[in-house]
């Protein structure tokens, strides 16, 4: 059994400028249409396999992001979309930015670009699916992985 057949996404905007957010949405729209592969953008963390984050984290949204991550069922993968989510980007020196998504939760795939294009977001998600399968494998065969993930 493979988990990567029709993964559901959840998207959380940490403190992005909206550019990457609308590109994530555009990826599910007619031009790119990832929904035809069974990928659905859900609003419920407990339904989701993949977490897409955009923007750098700040003090107020870090606990929200952590909560969403913890609510997601195992195994799960995190894709940081856009330069801000990877490193903090252009806002790195701002007083309210802690840094990229990986300062709060572990990240599996980094998608760069400002704003990240829908093509590169899709590519990032495809890479994340391979990681999801690996995690699932480890999860079912190795009881220790349950605690580590």
């Amino acid at each position: 059994m493979k988990l990567s057949r029709s993964p559901w996404l959840i998207h959380y905007d940490c403190s992005s400028c909206n550019g990457c957010d609308i590109e994530v949405l555009a990826a599910t729209m007619p031009r790119y249409d990832v929904e035809r592969f069974g990928i659905i953008n859900t609003g419920d963390p407990m339904h989701a396999d993949i977490l897409l984050t955009t923007g750098g984290c700040n003090h107020q949204n870090a606990p929200v992001l952590k909560q969403i991550y913890e609510q997601m069922p195992n195994p799960k993968v995190v894709v940081a979309v856009g330069t801000c989510a990877c490193t903090g980007g252009v806002f790195k020196d701002c007083y309210n930015i802690l840094g990229g998504t990986d300062t709060v939760i572990p990240v599996d795939v980094y998608v760069t670009g400002c704003a990240a294009r829908p093509e590169s977001i899709i590519d990032g998600v495809v890479q994340a699916l391979a990681i999801l399968d690996q995690k699932y494998e480890a999860y079912t065969t190795d009881p220790k992985a349950k605690e580590g993930n």
Binding site: S15, G55, N58, V90, F91, C94, C114
Partner: peptide
């Protein structure tokens, strides 16, 4: 929740370079 503190960045960026921050 998405406050970045972008206006404060003017003290760290050249006014010509700041256009790229203002756009964001």
């Amino acid at each position: 929740f998405i406050h970045r503190g972008l206006e404060g960045l003017v003290s760290k960026r050249d006014f010509k370079d700041y256009v790229y921050v203002a756009e964001r």
